[in-house]
Design a protein around this nucleic acid. Sequence first.
DNA 1: AATGTTACATACGCCTCGTATGTGAACCTA
DNA 2: TAGGTTCACATACGAGGCGTATGTAACATT
Lengths: 198, 198
Amino acid sequence: MAGERRSKMMEETRGKLISAARHVFAEKGYAATSMDDLTAMVGLTRGALYHNFGDKRGLLLAVVNQIDGEMAAHAAAVGSRADNGWDALMAEGVAYIEMALKPEVQRIVLLDGPAVLGDPSQWPSQSNCLQATVRKVEDLMAQGIIKPIDAEAAARLLSGAALNAALWIAANDHPQDVLKKAVEAFRCLAEGMLAVRN
Amino acid sequence: MAGERRSKMMEETRGKLISAARHVFAEKGYAATSMDDLTAMVGLTRGALYHNFGDKRGLLLAVVNQIDGEMAAHAAAVGSRADNGWDALMAEGVAYIEMALKPEVQRIVLLDGPAVLGDPSQWPSQSNCLQATVRKVEDLMAQGIIKPIDAEAAARLLSGAALNAALWIAANDHPQDVLKKAVEAFRCLAEGMLAVRN
DNA sequence: AATGTTACATACGCCTCGTATGTGAACCTA
DNA sequence: TAGGTTCACATACGAGGCGTATGTAACATT
């Protein structure tokens, strides 16, 4: 039961670094961010960085995991409020699109993340989120609501479509207008999985 | 008339640099590639690089444009061999997935490209490819084959789904098996756009 | 209280990028 | 064809940025 003050402090410095990184990575991008500046911004030096996260990539990984976790939690919360499995799946997809409108998510999770850390589906958090979608698809399939196809393939294509929709929206001048179109198209595509048309 | 030998030589060096960059970028990634090494690899120095492409990003842009152009051409060729508009759209989508299996395309066009150059839909070539898909969707819509939705939204979601499918396949150990599942799921989703089920 | 541990700072070397300047060959002119 | 000019590329230089090796002071253990 000792070393409590120490680990508390360490947790705080980790938090400060991650928080600063979220802001700066989102603004200037990963490559253009100097770790000297980043650490100085919160009154530290690179020493703290390399001790806590190993290297620059490690910091990005921590940031990505944090954001990704928040996204998964939010999507799950939205999905749980739906009346049935299908609506929940749709609601999660739409929520995913909406979340990806935040510059933080765009730049860090969708652009720099994959380039620096590699295939997103290997990340722990992303993997969890996808697995949840896979299970939802499997449930709906077992209920005969959607056609028998590979669940993982379906989940990945859905999330891919949502992701790309978000990128499109963010690059556009009228996000709200485009969001409506994107959501409509997303629902339309997703209905291709339905065993019986509404 | 004049300066023919000179511009011929310059075209050759540009070609050598782009060719080398395609290989090295695909292997080690954009960030990890040294321009000193890259240029030395074809018997040049960085002087040639900065003269021809302005900076490192300029070289990546040239590489991306070349690959993207090849992809668009291939997709168009595949699509033109189909009997009808719908089959052509499906064939192009599948072709897109298959092309994205090449490490070159994955690493350069799908990972580093967006991170370094920004939104892919702004790139000249990618934009052309997308526009072609949009027009195909509009045609099918005019024929009453697919439901009336926003054509650009549909095109973007389709290409997004295809893109993500490719990333999935490439990260997998059994590409051929997964390819089949992905293509099946892609067709399934796309059929959501059909006005009348087959 | 003495010793070990650790969280972070400091200091160093290596590499890479971009620019500024040099150079020799190809080009135009007469 | 001879002289000057242009230009494609090489060389030289300076400015960071990353990662590591080492230092240090606060904390923990006994």
